[in-house]
Design a binder for these strands. Structure first.
Lengths: 204, 204
DNA sequence: AAACAGGGGTGACATCTGTCATGACGCCGG
DNA sequence: CCGGCGTCATGACAGATGTCACCCCTGTTT
């Protein structure tokens, strides 16, 4: 019999982490050798255990899953990574694939799919949820420039223009220009709707 | 030996549902007899299987967990309910307890706590995550009137006042008055920040 | 009966935003 | 080397929004 696949599991919610561990442990040939609740912890565990595959939640308290995947790729070339998430936004998928992530799937898939994906990724292949892939292709890239995204992000909490300007080190007028062009690119009536739309697509 | 506790598990994300099932199945005296991915499904399954305890995710596609708990309480008085959630907002906890829910815990707890909570709730007790309880007591009730909450909710997607007015069947002037008073009650500079704050507290 | 809180509304005003034109600067690809 | 694009800025204007004062009506409390 072949060696089992060693897996690192990073997920901030304790209950879900234990549950996923229980699930993966039921699979033959898969061995969860480490768990982490934060991005930093995930990195440390990866260095300590050199797992074959790192299964990372997208949202972790400090670094997000994609940042962790990048760090792992640089530090441990032999370790393959995959992202699991509740928020299947096309933008995240693109960023993840660009970071060399081997798998990307939403938490809506079945346990069987997760296990298959782990094996596929371990074998050097890539597994992307078909539905998400279709969405990503249809959705296209963010039409926003870097600065527009920055400013829109600062607008996300409902702050007034003056505060955004102060935080972005820009004049209020410039902020309005960026917000205006961002909103028009996203066909939004105002910046708040623009924030909503950009969030939905994973662009901010 | 005593009868096992029969459990209904409602959670929209397939992977998490399977994982939780795997986890609960490892517990002695706990038997997951039904699963559901939506609120309606949960109700139907509850009627069909009469479980001892229904473990409900707070956010389900159609009805939310609290609505399901209310329906179950009315239809099956013998079935106890508990809510599990990623969003530990004080407002939800209050609403849940008011609906006769027996347990309320965030997904950050350990598997052991979940199992204990299931047993406690089955025994007629209540289990509320201590941290969440403290937050809820500290946070206090929503200062908003019913109408203010309604209007603020409609403002959540960034819609302009006119649209909110149309959807709430009010004049734009009245909408502005409500939004204004809501924002001042929440010490927000504008309605968008008010939405943010109200969301954070689970008031809308 | 009076006082009070909430729902719903109007009008006026000051300010905030969105929009547009315009200009400067730096960088990159043709 | 020119043109396009992104970044940053200014100024002007219209329309949206926030604020306040004051109105009416209803149900509850005192």
């Amino acid at each position: 019999m072949t060696e089992p696949i060693t897996v690192l599991l990073a997920e901030d919610e304790h209950l879900i982490r234990s549950a996923l561990r229980a699930l993966l442990s039921l699979e033959d040939g898969v061995d969860v050798v480490a768990e982490a609740a934060t991005g930093d912890e995930a990195l440390a565990m990866a260095r300590a255990h050199s797992p074959d595959v790192a299964v990372l939640d997208l949202q972790l308290p400090d670094l997000d899953g994609i940042a962790v995947a990048e760090a792992i790729r640089d530090a441990l070339p032999g370790c393959r990574t995959m992202i699991v998430t509740s928020h299947g936004r096309p933008g995240y998928l693109k960023r993840a694939l660009a970071s060399g992530v081997g798998g990307f799937l939403p938490k809506t898939v079945s346990a069987q799919v997760l296990a298959d994906a782990v094996r596929t990724v371990h074998g050097g292949g890539r597994y992307v949820d078909p539905e998400l892939a279709a969405e990503a292709i249809g959705a296209g890239d963010s039409p926003l420039t870097a600065r527009e995204s920055d400013v829109l992000e600062l607008a996300a909490e409902g702050a007034p223009v003056d505060e955004i300007a102060a935080r972005a080190a820009l004049t209020p007028g410039t902020v309005r220009n960026y917000l205006s062009s961002a909103a028009s690119k996203l066909s939004a009536a105002n910046r708040h709707e623009a924030v909503h739309i950009a969030r939905k697509h994973g662009w901010i």
